[in-house]
């Protein structure tokens, strides 16, 4: 059973890497926010799985709860913060003008 959990955790890590593609090359800032939110949800599950593998569930469940709460708040705060930015649609062009790659 431990091998099964290890395999599931590795698959989830691979999915996190796939999500990171959208986080790096996403056309707008909002795509990057979605990507971070999805990665956070997967990380919550990976933390619980790590607790199973090490046999220390009582400790890792608390860390996982804290991570889920923080992920939710961070997503809401980022969405609210970028609501007023008008450059959000054009940010690829904007970054090119400023000179950041």
């Amino acid at each position: 059973m431990e091998n099964f959990f290890l395999a599931i955790a590795l698959i989830l890590c691979f999915l996190v890497l796939l999500c990171l593609y959208r986080g790096i090359f996403g056309p707008t800032i909002l795509d990057r926010i979605i990507s971070i939110s999805v990665i956070g949800t997967k990380t919550t599950i990976i933390l619980v799985l790590i607790g199973f593998i090490y046999g220390r569930m009582d400790m890792f469940v608390d860390i996982s709860i804290a991570y889920a709460l923080l992920n939710f708040i961070a997503t809401l705060a980022a969405a609210k913060f970028f609501r007023t930015r008008k450059s959000i649609v054009l940010d690829a062009k904007f970054f090119k003008e400023v000179g950041i790659k």
Binding site: L30, I34, S37, T41, I65, A68, T75, L76
Partner: peptide
């Protein structure tokens, strides 16, 4: 408890991001 929290919080986060996209 984590599962129920994600069940409530994830659609709310989706809603917030979509609304911010619509307003931008």
């Amino acid at each position: 408890f984590i599962a129920i929290f994600i069940f409530i919080a994830n659609p709310t986060a989706t809603h917030a991001i979509t609304k911010s996209g619509l307003e931008c």
